[in-house]
Nucleic acid binder design. Structure first.
Lengths: 336, 336
DNA sequence: GTGAAAGCGCTAACAA
DNA sequence: TTGTTAGCGCTTTCAC
């Protein structure tokens, strides 16, 4: 194993507690001793054993980030935001990928009760509306902050974006461009943020005197191939929708692929707005009109709130709920 | 704090050691006792404290993944590959992002000597050719496996792709398409993989009787804005290159952006091949010809090797070096 | 088959 | 200002 505090102490003719306090820059220790210790520690490249100090201090210095996916521009950018603050606070970021599987999610959260992490940042996976495992975690007092995909029935802090409004604006834009039939693609009826986006879509249609039709609401899955054929079916049918709202990034890019395969022109044959944080949306063929979420900012904010809780600067009473608005970027996929 | 093994033991009228052994499914314990313990543990949702067991067992169950970036299709996909095997092994994945900053990288690696993680998977950051901190880590016997961006002067296991050949093929394709002047964009002269890609580029030119010219070799930085103007300069100059090899994803997409700004047509005015693992390369305008690395596979392989080392199934003697070939996908950006 | 006890490396209360 | 010591929760000998 590595070098221990005991060795440092004996080498220097000091007590372990003296060394420990020196490392903690305690006021009890003389400047001279501190200097001596620090110099030796540096020379030996000594780093205290993380497990031992975690055990004693009852904090690990780790936070968990639970996400459905990582190869997705929203989540990877949010992780960047989280990391940017964890980095400064000297915390370590453990990544857990649920792959939209609630069973996996459950077994992941289960482990957090053991004090493997000091807090949890989470974006829920889709699937059935089961939140017992999250409730249990929350009940066991592990600091928890949701970002993006929150569980509405849990009173934890949340960092969200204005999903209802964004859904509304996306749909409104398509209407303004002359679409009378507009499809809504989504991955889960059980995610609150998707419900909100859908409510926005729905309201925009109603406000414009258009009756929402079931055939245009496509419930996708977590399997790409299945989604592929669902979208293909949508676009092959007689009354092909004139506009499409893709409520997640993957479904939007998949729609592009399907259009290519079917030889459909965007925006000529159908127009598309997608929820996406892709930096390269402007480079797509055609450039994609997006609702872009403030991914980095959301991650950063969620992490900041978590650290506030960890530092006891927050009572459980006040549950923060922060909403950071998304931006609509109009591009060629909704052009003429 | 949570519930401890001591409580379980006293509740059940057993000794802590009996409970501990039951949890470890030790042969010493009777089936009946095991069952009783397991049932109670399950009922209480007990999970052993990670720090305590790490301290005792001298292994944390964590592995570190050190990457320059996470919002990049190669790295996020590689992380997926790593996670897929860590998941099965019951390991936890701690992510460290260096942002191409060797100073940060150094301070990150420094911490691994304390036994915070059992092993390290790393893709080196660019910058000057400093590898002392990595050497130090390696010398301190922390299991280390490189993936993609390795330090050539360190005898750790490596998972690579065929960079020389890929560079050659990318360039060769452009030549075949009639390009006589071909630029090479790169971020760092000090990364071995980039050197290899460059060697391939260079050799392909020579093999075809074309003299490589300095003006067409663009050394970019880690700052997007600076790279932007460097590429703009390249494409604005008189003898604009007829073809471009983008040796990293970001530089390639940046080139698209610049072409858009300058009103240059791809592939008409200049043709492009990019190293990239983007799934949506076919959807770009125009679709991008790529050298696509087997990102998931590389991550998975690197993790598998690391766990082999962790399980002692490997002697330090035999340093594995695995090469998984990339694939050239020809698309519209190198068309007529 | 089960239990008692030592000790992993560290921190912090208390003693000197 | 420095040292002694108990103990964080667990695993693992060793004794019964």
């Amino acid at each position: 194993m590595g070098i221990t505090i005991k060795k440092i102490a004996s080498d220097l003719g000091l007590a372990v507690s003296t060394v420990s306090k020196s490392l903690g820059d305690s006021y009890e220790i003389s400047e001279e001793t501190k200097k001596r210790v620090l110099a030796y520690v540096k020379k030996l490249n000594y780093v205290p054993n993380a497990s031992a100090s975690s055990l004693k201090k009852r904090k690990t210095g780790n936070i968990a980030v639970v996400v459905p996916e990582v190869a997705d521009s929203y989540f990877s950018t949010a992780i960047n935001g989280i990391e940017s603050v964890a980095q400064v606070k000297g915390y370590h970021v453990i990544i857990y990928i649920t792959h939209e599987d609630q069973v996996k999610e459950q077994s992941i959260l289960q482990q957090f009760k053991s004090g493997r992490v000091d807090g949890v940042l989470m974006s829920a996976s889709s699937g059935k509306k089961i939140t017992n495992h999250v409730k249990e975690l929350f009940a066991s007092k592990v600091p928890l902050v949701f970002f993006d995909r929150a569980c509405e029935d849990i009173d934890a802090a949340k960092v969200l974006t204005n999903d209802f409004e964004s859904g509304y604006r996306a749909t409104e834009l398509l209407l303004k461009k002359g679409c009378r039939t507009i499809a809504f693609l989504h991955m889960s009826e059980n995610l609150h943020i998707i419900q909100e986006r859908f409510r926005g879509y729905h309201k925009a249609l109603q406000d414009n005197g258009i009756k929402p039709m079931k055939e245009y609401i496509v419930s996708c899955t977590s399997q790409d191939t299945k989604n592929h054929s669902l979208i293909k079916k949508l676009l092959s049918r007689e009354g092909r929708p004139e506009g499409i709202v893709g409520s997640t990034e993957k479904l939007t890019t998949l729609t592009y692929t399907v259009c290519n395969e079917l030889g459909l022109r965007i925006p000529g044959d159908t127009k598309i707005v997608g929820f996406s944080s892709m930096g390269i949306a402007p480079l797509l063929n055609p450039s994609l009109t997006t609702i872009t979420q403030p991914a980095f900012e959301m991650g950063k904010t969620a992490a900041t709130i978590l650290f506030k809780i960890l530092n006891g600067k927050k009572t459980d009473q006040i549950i923060e709920k922060v909403v950071i608005p998304s931006t609509l970027y109009e591009r060629a996929s909704t052009g003429e």
